[in-house]
């Protein structure tokens, strides 16, 4: 466990908590893509099946359970408790465009052709594109609440820190996981445009709105 990895995990957790607190306090999930949140719940579910079979550490187990809980509570708030505030009209990204290639790729390119390994690979590929419905929604409405941009910033920061973690592990432990690294790079690239807007607008006190 290195400093990039722990900061990455903290940043990931912070992103999910920011989103939950935003929805809870405002009693509204306006501007949030329910589809992205469903995809994240699916990512955690398919990746953390090893909770039942493989013990790694207390930290690992606790974080996995917390991530799963956060993801499912978020989905419940969007589609259950506060569904009247959910902007389904603008959450119109077609999930099959992501799911079909991701499922196909996880069958083609994996470490071993076993159900758990394919599900793990599926979760890695899916995570790299899961934010797209959210980014699509922002580009469609042309704006995002500032709190939503903080959520996206920490989610992107988590990915960038994981890249640093992998570089560190490559040099110190001779470790690399090519599926995770390639997907992680792809995922981080999706955030670059957003990072630019976040730094040039939101951090200067302006609302994120697209021309």
């Amino acid at each position: 466990m290195n400093v990039f990895r722990i900061l990455g995990d903290v940043s990931h957790l912070l992103a999910m908590v920011i989103l939950l607190v935003k929805i809870w306090r405002s009693k509204s999930c306006a501007g949030i893509s329910g589809k992205s949140q469903i995809l994240f719940a699916l990512v955690f579910t398919s990746r953390y099946l090893d909770l039942l079979t493989n013990f790694i550490s207390i930290y690992n187990t606790v974080m996995k359970v917390v991530f799963l809980l956060c993801a499912y509570v978020t989905v419940y708030l969007i589609y259950g408790k506060f569904r009247k505030t959910f902007d389904s009209e603008n959450d119109s990204f077609r999930l099959e465009f992501l799911l079909v290639p991701v499922i196909g790729l996880s069958f083609l390119e994996n470490y071993s052709f076993t159900p758990t390994e394919i599900l793990w690979t599926f979760s890695i590929y899916l995570e790299s594109v899961a934010i797209l419905p959210q980014l699509f929604m922002i580009s469609k409405t042309g704006e995002a609440e500032t709190i939503t941009t903080h959520y996206l910033f920490f989610l992107g920061l988590y990915r960038a820190l994981y890249l640093a973690n992998w570089i560190w592990r490559y040099h110190t432990e001779n470790f690399y996981d090519q599926i995770a690294v390639v997907s992680g790079v792809v995922q981080t690239i999706f955030y670059c445009d957003f990072f630019y807007l976040y730094i040039t607008k939101v951090l200067k006190g302006k609302k994120l709105s697209l021309p």
Partner: peptide, 10 residues
Amino acid sequence: PAPASGKDEL
């Protein structure tokens, strides 16, 4: 190094 699956990561 040989690739390894990062199952200890979240």
